[in-house]
Simulated scan of single mutants.
Amino acid sequence: MIERRKGIIVNVGSITALAPGPWAGAYSASKAALHALGDTLRLELRSFGINVVTVAPGGTKSNLGNSSAAKYDQIHDWKYYKQFEESMRARTNVSQGPGATSAEELANKVVASVLKKNPPAFLAYGQFSAILSMLYYAPLWVRDYFYRVVMKC
């Protein structure tokens, strides 16, 4: 890409990197790291004609989400977390529920955006992307309230 002075790198992060909630710490942290890498690469590679786009999907129906739900079947072995089973299941189910974006719809949106003459540096799309984007800018007590009271976590 550098030799051609042209190219695009697309990193798929997550909207949870902006407003991480309970029961997804490692996932949210890994996506936040990917967002930071994308921000850095975008600046470093711009002078070579390479665009970097970070995609932050909201709730998207996927095999990852489905396999996440299956892990709770072994929760009887989780001495300290058993009391949170309902909340943990709800967290997983909400991202895979009826309002979740289909993977095909997300892919179509990403491809259309990335192929534009001037692709966006950041693309948030799908279920919960608007509310979690707003929570990113809100004071922490607002975010905590949202997860504790609204999401019952």
Rank of each mutant, 00 (worst) to 15 (best):
A100R: 03
V53H: 10
S95H: 09
D77S: 05
E104T: 12
G59V: 12
R91K: 09
E86I: 00
V52Q: 15
V94Q: 11
P98M: 00
F48Y: 13
S87N: 09
M88L: 06
A70R: 13
S87L: 02
N93E: 06
R89C: 00
K71V: 07
Q74M: 08
R91Q: 09
V53A: 08
L45Q: 13
T40M: 14
Q83C: 03
T101V: 03
N51T: 07
N51V: 01
N63Y: 02
I50D: 14
V53Q: 15
K109Y: 08
T101A: 05
L37G: 07
D73A: 07
A69S: 12
S95R: 10
V94I: 07
E44S: 02
G38L: 04
Y80Q: 14
F84G: 00
E105Q: 14
R46D: 15
Q83R: 11
Y72W: 05
N51I: 01
E86T: 05
G59N: 14
A100G: 02
A69P: 02
F48V: 02
H76K: 12
R46L: 14
F48H: 14
I75T: 12
N51D: 15
A69G: 11
Q96G: 08
N93C: 00
F84Y: 11
N93D: 04
S47H: 14
R91P: 01
I50L: 09
Q74A: 14
R89M: 01
A90K: 09
K79H: 14
K71P: 05
S68F: 00
R89F: 00
K61E: 10
S95V: 08
P98L: 00
F48A: 13
T54K: 10
I50S: 12
N51G: 10
V110D: 10
V110P: 12
E105R: 13
A103I: 02
K79G: 11
V55H: 09
G58I: 11
Q83A: 07
H76W: 08
P57E: 15
F48E: 12
A70P: 09
S102Y: 07
V55M: 08
D77A: 05
Y81R: 08
N63G: 10
K79S: 13
I75V: 10
K61R: 13
G99Y: 05
Q96M: 13
H76C: 05
S47F: 06
A100D: 04
A90F: 03
T101F: 02
G97R: 01
